[in-house]
């Protein structure tokens, strides 16, 4: 019995919050009471969850990545301009997007790990530059559209799937992304060393961990996750300047809600996933109760502070 209680207390409280929110959503709207309805919720939550997982790598290793929002914008703009609406160019555009993402991640990583610039300043700089590049490339007014086979990842839904009926492609992308990142974090020495680096970089270095290289890699992972999220978002919502705006803060909020401790050293992919799901479920619920759209931001702020204050109270250093 005591062991049962102890394991109950060890469960990430975010999961309980998510279950409560989900129950409230199902109670409010019959749309979500079917497997198809829940899958469509997952489909729309996919970008935030993927971003939150990618951001967690950076946060766990002790940094911040503020550039993910503008990288999403750049990816969507790049896809629109490279394909020009022509389906034949989709694969080129996808490859180019991941190339751009890797480049931005490497630049962030080099500035932080080699230049010793605090990551909040470094990624702020790349945020400005990446957004500027997106605007320059598109001549100031991103337009055009994405070909159907590129939007496939974000919005296509397979029909007549046994058991669930409809199955969105984005959920498959989500599951694969989570699997890769969870394996990196929890199944490899790389991930374990990241926790150590985040907790005490000096100690990790003395113990022989390649601190600089691993720190750099966290920014690359976060950037690649942003590219994936950008491809999904481009599929949902099309091409605009604002497509990525605010997502960096949503990703950080989601990771904090999930219990990834800022400035490093703690956290898990499970927490990051449920942090992202909780944030999205909360937005959905606020929509259902007719909460004014701009107030969502205020609620995000309160939840963020509450989550951080709670983890501070639970004796962790945040």
């Amino acid at each position: 019995m005591t062991r049962g209680l102890a394991s109950l207390r060890r469960i990430n409280p975010t999961i309980l919050v998510f279950v409560v929110l989900l129950a409230a959503i199902c109670w409010m709207s019959p749309l979500y009471r079917t497997p198809a309805g829940l899958l469509s919720l997952l489909q729309r939550a996919a970008p935030v969850v993927i971003l939150s997982c990618g951001q967690s790598f950076v946060l766990i290793a002790g940094g911040f990545d503020l550039a993910s929002g503008s990288l999403i914008t750049l990816v969507v703009v790049a896809c629109a301009l490279i394909t020009g609406g022509d389906a034949g160019w989709t694969w080129v555009a996808l490859l180019a997007s991941y190339g751009i993402g890797a480049a931005v991640g490497v630049v962030n990583g080099v500035i932080v790990a080699r230049g010793k610039v605090p990551s909040i300043i470094a990624t702020l700089g790349t945020l400005l530059s990446v957004k500027g590049i997106a605007m320059m490339w598109s001549g100031g007014a991103p337009g055009g559209y994405l070909p159907a086979n590129l939007r496939f990842f974000g919005r296509y839904v397979w029909r007549h799937v046994p058991l669930v009926g409809r199955f969105p492609v984005a959920v498959v992308v989500l599951i694969i992304s989570i699997a890769i990142m969870a394996w990196l974090m929890h199944g490899t020495n790389f991930g374990r060393l990241l926790l150590m680096i985040g907790d005490n970089p000096r100690a990790a270095e003395l113990a022989g961990a390649p601190v600089r290289r691993f720190r750099m890699l966290t920014f690359v992972i976060s950037a690649l996750a942003s590219v994936t999220a950008g491809i999904l978002l481009g599929g949902f919502s099309g091409v605009s300047v604002d497509v990525g705006t605010g997502y960096e803060l949503q990703a950080i909020s989601a990771a904090v809600i999930g219990g990834v401790v800022l400035l490093g050293g703690q956290g898990s992919m499970l927490g990051a996933v449920f942090g992202g799901l909780t944030l999205y479920a909360l937005f959905t619920l606020l929509n259902l109760v007719g909460f004014p759209e701009p107030m969502r931001v205020a609620v995000q702020g309160i939840i963020l502070i509450a989550a951080a204050a709670l983890s501070a109270r639970r004796g962790r250093r945040i």
């Binding site: 800022l262 400035l263 701009p294 205020a298 609620v299 995000q300 702020g301 945040i318």
Partner: peptide, 18 residues
């Protein structure tokens, strides 16, 4: 309350904005 200053002020900023 020992909240990380980044998070605390980010959260307060979001509340003000909303």
């Amino acid at each position: 309350l020992k909240v990380s200053p980044l998070i605390a002020t980010l959260g307060v900023g979001l509340v003000l904005q909303g």
